[in-house]
């Protein structure tokens, strides 16, 4: 057990707030990523130009390092919390029943959906960012043909299926995490909380449906 002075700044409330803030920042990234990827619907040039605009900017390395740091904080803190929470109840109940008025599917599966998202993240980066490298020329500028890589990647129906499962899990994760962050930060107000919870559900659906639609779209693009 940590001494009083050392746990003051990392008490259970602050730990949850670190989870909440890092989670909200990651929500921001997921939303930006989804909106950016919408250029796929426009066509190959739009998507490649968007990708080139991002990767050719020298600031991208700072952005990537920052993103990695946020991910690490969120993941390491989650591991610490899960270990502590398991230790808080060494003997389990013989039988357990939820009241139906508190815990939800999303809230009770946060560690599972989190781990699924992490596995997905690794496969996703290896398959696309570090996937097959093609080059193309758009308006006289030579750039990576990430569009071709993406379409090719989703020609495998198993990839499409895996993506749908993974982003659905991510959607479930954020549907609890998004409103939960507000509660952890102390921003629970009877007037706004129902709206924040509604926004969390809407965001969860947007993430699941949006990214799934992109994967399915890519699958059918290749069949043309």
């Amino acid at each position: 057990m940590s001494s009083k002075s050392s746990c003051s700044f990392l008490n259970s409330v602050v730990k949850k707030q670190i989870m909440g803030v890092s989670g909200l920042l990651l929500c921001g990234f997921v939303l930006t990523h989804l909106l950016g990827n919408m250029t796929l619907f426009i066509g190959s040039d739009a998507f490649n130009k968007y990708s080139y605009a991002l990767t050719s900017n020298p600031l991208i390395y700072f952005a990537e390092a920052g993103l990695l740091a946020i991910f690490l904080v969120h993941i390491l803190m989650a591991i610490k919390l899960v270990i502590e929470n398991n230790a808080a109840r060494p003997v389990q109940y013989y039988t357990r029943k939820h009241s139906g008025r508190g815990s939800t599917f999303a809230s009770s599966t946060m560690p599972i959906s989190g781990v699924l998202t992490l596995i997905f993240l690794v496969i996703h980066i290896l398959g696309l960012k570090f996937g097959t490298h093609y080059e193309t020329e758009v308006h006289g500028v030579v750039m990576r043909d990430i569009y071709k890589t993406t379409i090719e990647y989703f020609q495998d129906p198993l990839h499409v299926l895996f993506y749908i499962i993974a982003v659905t899990s991510l959607g479930v994760h954020v549907s609890h995490g998004f409103w939960s962050a507000f509660q952890s930060l102390g921003w629970n107000h009877p007037k706004y909380m129902p709206k924040i919870k509604l926004a969390a559900t809407a965001f969860g659906i947007l993430v699941s449906v949006g990214f799934s639609a992109l994967a399915v779209f890519c699958y059918f693009q290749g069949a043309k």
């Binding site: 003051s8 109840r89 008025r101 815990s103 809230s107 509660q183 952890s184």
Partner: peptide, 25 residues
């Protein structure tokens, strides 16, 4: 608030995950 939370942590209670099962029960 700070002193009571510190004591709660020291005594080995778990962390809140905003499930609201406590409120319900």
């Amino acid at each position: 608030a700070l002193a009571m939370v510190d004591k709660m942590d020291e005594l080995g209670f778990g962390n809140c995950t905003n499930e609201a099962e406590c409120e319900a029960q």
